[in-house]
């Protein structure tokens, strides 16, 4: 039916771009993870086998970053996927008048994450607005970003805030493809709102849900900007994440080999997680 040969041509732009701008840098980094690399001359000076990996696995800060990253991913991915889905459904249902509200939800995602992080540093500070609100409601003020216990959850909360509007737009696009007739038929059969959501909306949105969860997981594993601007990994390594750890190894310690090894580990982690999620979501679907 479909002319297969010309279909291959459709791949071409992506393939060229991939080969030049992704495959080469990726291969280069993979190689570096097995080498000593001196950016100040000489390039790869020595092949060291698994030495870089051994070194990072022996570093307690690496494991600290590892745990923090997993906590960040778990803490941000599911809430974001859930809240943004509900948000999208609510926005989609609301009429023309409320349509402009969408803009309001989307705006936080429009502002650059760097600016948002700076503002949250303010909001989370001792005399910041969060403490003002908390004390107004009778709670006690806290050092959000200075407490080793609260710093990471505070960053997670900000991340959710900054990304729900963003992921809602993917759901909105998906919601718009669900034929209205399906809803009408269900309503005629006397289905309630929840039933409609469960038996029509959810299954039809499945590919988009997979996309949102997978993409957000990938992004969450690479959390970086927030950490650099708000905490630089502190206090006492409590917000150290893998990519920030990698970045410090690369551009502070200037140890490209170790940084590349971290990158490979992060890649493997993301791939494993994504695979797991796709499997899980597949099962959820068959259960529905």
């Amino acid at each position: 039916m479909i002319p297969r040969r010309s279909l291959l041509l459709f791949f071409l732009p992506w393939l060229v771009s991939f080969a030049v701008f992704s495959a080469y840098p990726i291969g280069f980094s993979l190689g570096l993870s097995f080498a000593d690399y001196n950016p100040f001359g000489g390039g790869i000076t020595r092949w060291v086998g698994l030495e870089n990996y051994r070194a990072i696995f022996a570093d307690s800060l690496f494991w600290r970053s590892f745990t923090n990253t997993i906590v960040f991913v778990v803490g941000t991915v599911l809430p974001t996927a859930g809240i943004s889905l509900i948000l999208a459904v609510l926005i989609n249902r609301s009429g023309r008048l409320l349509g402009c509200l969408r803009g309001g939800y989307f705006i936080p995602s429009v502002v650059s994450l760097a600016a948002v992080s700076l503002i949250f540093k303010y909001i989370y500070s001792k005399q910041g607005f969060l403490n003002a609100i908390v004390t107004m409601m009778g709670g006690t003020a806290r050092d959000w970003l200075l407490s080793p216990k609260l710093a990471l959850p505070s960053i997670i909360a900000m991340d959710i805030w900054a990304s729900i509007g963003y992921y809602a737009i993917f759901y909105l696009a998906g919601l718009q493809t669900i034929p209205q007739e399906l809803y009408e038929a269900a309503r005629m059969d006397g289905a309630g709102r929840l039933a409609i959501f469960r038996f029509i909306t959810l299954p039809s949105l499945k590919p988009v849900i997979v996309f949102v969860v997978v993409v957000n997981t990938i992004r969450a594993f690479q959390v970086f900007v927030e950490v650099v601007i708000m905490t630089r990994g502190g206090p006492m390594g409590s917000t150290m994440t893998l990519i920030y750890y990698m970045y410090e190894k690369a551009f502070h310690r200037i140890n490209m080999g170790a940084a590349s090894a971290v990158a490979v580990v992060v890649f493997a982690l993301i791939a494993g997680f994504a695979l797991l999620q796709v499997r899980l979501l597949r099962q959820v679907r068959s259960a529905v």
């Binding site: 005399q127 970003l145 200075l146 710093a151 905490t231 630089r232 502190g234 206090p235």
Partner: peptide, 14 residues
Amino acid sequence: EDIYGFGLNAGERY
């Protein structure tokens, strides 16, 4: 309560 004698640095590297 919200006046401090001195500022000690904490919570950041470098």
